[in-house]
Amino acid sequence: MLLIACPWCGEREELEFHYGGQAHVGYPANPEGLTDSEWAEYLFVRDNPKGLFAERWSHAAGCRRWFNLIRHTVTHQILAVQSNRPVAAGQPKPVIP
């Protein structure tokens, strides 16, 4: 069971969280302007790296806030946690070293 540091609540057991998959996949600005295959890419295709992964979690049984972190998908080491603000708000993506 992972120990995840919620940016608002601190370290909590994984049981309190919901997983949200890859971070920084924004809802397309103009869905009607996308081809079917571009739309399918948004709907269904996500990165699936063996290694560092920027992903979303929500502290579902706590403060209920969403946030992003960078986790290694083999070692499960968590390298960085960042409160969630979408790319649209101008915040740079965390850099995967």
Binding site: M1, L2, E14, G21, E55, T73
Partner: peptide, 13 residues
């Protein structure tokens, strides 16, 4: 397990 993982192990709960 809910999260992505290549570690061939999951969470004990």
């Amino acid at each position: 397990d809910s999260y992505n993982g290549y570690g061939q192990r999951g969470s004990f709960h």
